[in-house]
Amino acid sequence: MTEKPKNEIKLIIERCKGCRFCVEFCPQHILYQSDEVNSKGYRIVDVADISKCDQCNTCSMVCPEFAINVVSIEAKPVKDGEVVCLSQDT
């Protein structure tokens, strides 16, 4: 049984240079370097199991390329009954 993912890891593919810092520092070990390459030939990272993500943002912090970040996709009702996606914006 897998839990419904609460977070989403977003990668700007063209910025990734495949340095694997995020893979090394992820406390849940859910990132790995895939065989896919971007237009510059760097092997980009991918997510193995997003449901384990705790949104600690360490992958975003260690990324020297400003390529990866985590956003929350928890849907919460607002006043008029609509449902919006809350993203973590600074």
């Binding site: 977003k10 240079k17 997510v47 997003i50 449901s51 390529a67 600074t90």
Partner: peptide
Amino acid sequence: MTKVIVSNQKHPLDTYLRTDRLP
């Protein structure tokens, strides 16, 4: 298992970076 990697996204710090020079 779950593929959540998306392209053409915006980084939260992009507002403070000259993104036309990135990568």
